[in-house]
C-alpha cells in the first residue's frame, strides 16, 4: 500500500511509447489517493496530454534530455509535467496560449490538447520560460 502522501517522480526519455506508462502510474496513484473512478479517466487523459506535449516538444527540438513527471498524493492528486524546451516566459492563461502557439508551429498534435487538460482538471497552472515549461494539474479527493 502506498502511503497517502506519497510522491512518485518519473524521468522519461523523449520517446512517445513511454507516455502510456506515465498514464498508468497516474491512474494507479490517483486510485490509491481517493480519486473517484469516474475522475480517473480525466487524470489519465490530462496527464497523457501534458506528457505527450512535453515529449513531442523535446523530440521536435532535438532535446535528448528526459521529461520529468512528479505525481504527489495526499489530499487528492497533483501531477506536474516538466519539459526543458525554452519558450517565452509566461504564466497562467498567457502561458497556455504560448503552448498552443508552440503546438501549432510543431504540427505535432491538436492545440486543443491544452483545452482538454483545462477541461478535465480541477485546477491547472502553466508556466513557460527559458528553462522550459511546467504544467501542474490537480484533482481533489472524492
Amino acid at each position: 500500500m502506498v502511503p497517502s502522501a506519497s510522491t512518485v517522480t518519473l524521468t522519461i526519455k523523449p520517446d512517445l511509447s513511454h507516455v502510456r506508462l506515465v498514464r498508468l502510474v497516474a491512474v494507479t496513484l490517483g486510485r490509491l489517493n481517493g480519486i473517484g473512478e469516474d475522475v480517473l479517466d480525466d487524470v489519465r487523459l490530462a496527464t497523457g496530454e501534458a506528457c505527450s506535449r512535453a515529449v513531442a516538444s523535446h523530440l521536435h527540438h532535438g532535446l535528448a534530455q528526459p521529461v520529468e513527471v512528479e505525481l504527489r498524493g495526499g489530499d487528492g492528486l497533483d501531477v506536474c509535467v516538466r519539459d526543458f524546451v525554452p519558450l517565452p516566459p509566461a504564466t497562467g492563461e498567457s502561458a497556455a496560449e504560448v503552448l498552443r502557439q508552440d503546438m501549432v508551429e510543431q504540427q505535432s498534435a491538436l492545440p486543443e490538447a491544452i483545452g482538454l487538460i483545462e477541461g478535465v482538471s480541477d485546477d491547472v497552472t502553466v508556466h513557460t520560460g527559458e528553462m522550459g515549461t511546467t504544467v501542474e494539474m490537480r484533482w481533489s479527493r472524492a
Binding site: R23, R44, S52, A109, L110, E112, L116
Partner: peptide, 11 residues
C-alpha cells in the same frame, strides 16, 4: 482511450 492526437487523426 482517445487523446488529442487521435482526434487530430480523425479531423
Amino acid at each position: 482511450f482517445l487523446d488529442s492526437t487521435g482526434l487530430g487523426v480523425l479531423v
